[in-house]
Structures are given as structure tokens and as C-alpha cells.
């Protein structure tokens, strides 16, 4: 029996692990958004009834996307080791985790984005077409702007999902909250660290979720509906 870890040490652990998690998740979310939104747009443009329907391109893109989504993250994490080394110059640590996280999240974001964009009513899109707007203009001002609230929520969902995936980062020494709970808490039978981390993760994800919900609502002009 050893005495429980002092609370001050628990806090130090948590602060450090939170920093790592936010770093891994933050950067990979940005990358997944920057690359995943275009994938979603492309999926929707080439879909049947889209602005540039193209069955062949759509099918290939769909296949790759769904393949990426069905890949278990832990597999991606180890399978991408050499790619990771090529990109970040190493295959260990928080930065190294960003690569598989982002790669895993791109198809995830892509599908979410396509589903959201497909919800924009065809009359609204066709009305924009008849104004002589270019495809790029319609994508920006109609598809994306009209679904911005849902897109912001989708990014929120992605962040939460990535926090979950990042728990496996410990496998390649990425650290973070999940790793703290598993390695320091679970494997060393340190209940205080385990449950503090679990509680803190719950708080963190709730706050993040709330932040995205707020931002989504702030971007939504429909809330101004007559009172």
C-alpha cells in the first residue's frame, strides 16, 4: 500500500496532460477541417443532384472516405508510423499523434460535411444558380454559409471524437488525458488519478460541446424568428 498521490501532484499531472490533449486535438481538428471540408464539398458537388454530378468521381471518393472512416484508430496509429516520421520527423510524442488523428478525422469530417450540405434545399441552390453565380460562389455563399451552424456543430462533434481517439496516443508516447488515465491511473491502480482524470474529461468535453453549441447558435440567423 502506498499513500494516495497528493492533490497538488494530481493537478500538475492534469494540467500537463490537458495541454497535450488540447495540442493534439486542436491541431488535428484544424487540419481535418481544412482538408475535410473540401472533401465534403467535393462529395456533395459530384453527388447525384449536386452542382457537378459525376458518378465515377463520387463513387471513388465515397469509397476512400468510407474506408478511412471504418479504419480503427489504433490501426491507423501504428500503420501510419512511417508516414508520420516523414511528415513530422519522428514517430513518437504528441506531435507524432497529430498525423494519424488528422488522417482519421478527414474522412469523418468529409462525410459529416457532405450530409450537412445536402440538406440545403434544392430551390435555394437553384435560385442562386439562376443569379448567374459561379460554382465557387454557390459553395461559399449558399452551401457553406447556409449550413454554417450545422458545420460548426459538426466540428464540435469532431473535437469530442478526437479527444476520444487521442486516448490511444499513449501507444506512441503522445501523452494526454486518456494516456494519464490509463497509464498512471488504471495500470498503476491509482484511483485518485483515474477518477480525477475521468471527471476532468467529462467537464472538458461538456465545456467544449457547450462552446460549439453557442458558436453555432450565434452564427444562426434563423433564431431571429418572430417572437
Amino acid at each position: 500500500m502506498r499513500s494516495a498521490t497528493p492533490w497538488s501532484d494530481v493537478v500538475t499531472y492534469l494540467v500537463e496532460a490537458t495541454g497535450e490533449t488540447l495540442y493534439m486535438v486542436g491541431v488535428s481538428t484544424v487540419i481535418a477541417t481544412v482538408l475535410g471540408v473540401p472533401v465534403g464539398v467535393w462529395l456533395q458537388l459530384t453527388a447525384k443532384g449536386g452542382l457537378r454530378p459525376n458518378a465515377a468521381v463520387h463513387r471513388v471518393l465515397s469509397f476512400v472516405t468510407d474506408l478511412g472512416r471504418s479504419m480503427p484508430f489504433i490501426v491507423l496509429l501504428v500503420a501510419l508510423t512511417s508516414v508520420t516520421r516523414l511528415i513530422v520527423g519522428g514517430s513518437i510524442g504528441s506531435t507524432a499523434v497529430i498525423v494519424p488523428l488528422a488522417v482519421g478525422a478527414i474522412p469523418f469530417v468529409g462525410r459529416l460535411v457532405q450530409n450537412i450540405l445536402s440538406e440545403v434545399h434544392v430551390t435555394v441552390v437553384e435560385a442562386a444558380i439562376t443569379t448567374g453565380a459561379s460554382t465557387l460562389k454557390i459553395v461559399r455563399s449558399v452551401l457553406i454559409r447556409e449550413s454554417l451552424p450545422a458545420l460548426i456543430n459538426a466540428i464540435g462533434v469532431t473535437v469530442i471524437a478526437l479527444i476520444g481517439y487521442s486516448a490511444m496516443a499513449g501507444v506512441i508516447g503522445g501523452g494526454g488525458l486518456g494516456d494519464l488515465a490509463i497509464r498512471e491511473g488504471y495500470q498503476r491502480f491509482n484511483d485518485r488519478i483515474l477518477w480525477s482524470t475521468v471527471a476532468w474529461l467529462a467537464v472538458l468535453t461538456t465545456v467544449i460541446q457547450l462552446g460549439f453549441t453557442r458558436a453555432a447558435r450565434a452564427s444562426d440567423r434563423r433564431r431571429h424568428a418572430s417572437v
Binding site: T123, V124, A127, S134, R221
Partner: peptide, 24 residues
């Protein structure tokens, strides 16, 4: 063109909607 049914951008004001063809 005045399309059949609701065709306005719901995230834009009345003025913003009218401006769309001018932006194009």
C-alpha cells in the same frame, strides 16, 4: 427567376438576398 417555393437564403437579410445577383 422567381423560383417556385421558398428560395431565399435564410442566413441572409432581405437586403443580402437581393444583393446576391449583384455579387455574382
Amino acid at each position: 427567376v422567381v423560383p417556385q417555393g421558398d428560395s431565399l437564403l435564410r442566413q441572409r437579410t432581405a437586403a443580402g438576398n437581393i444583393a446576391l445577383p449583384l455579387e455574382s
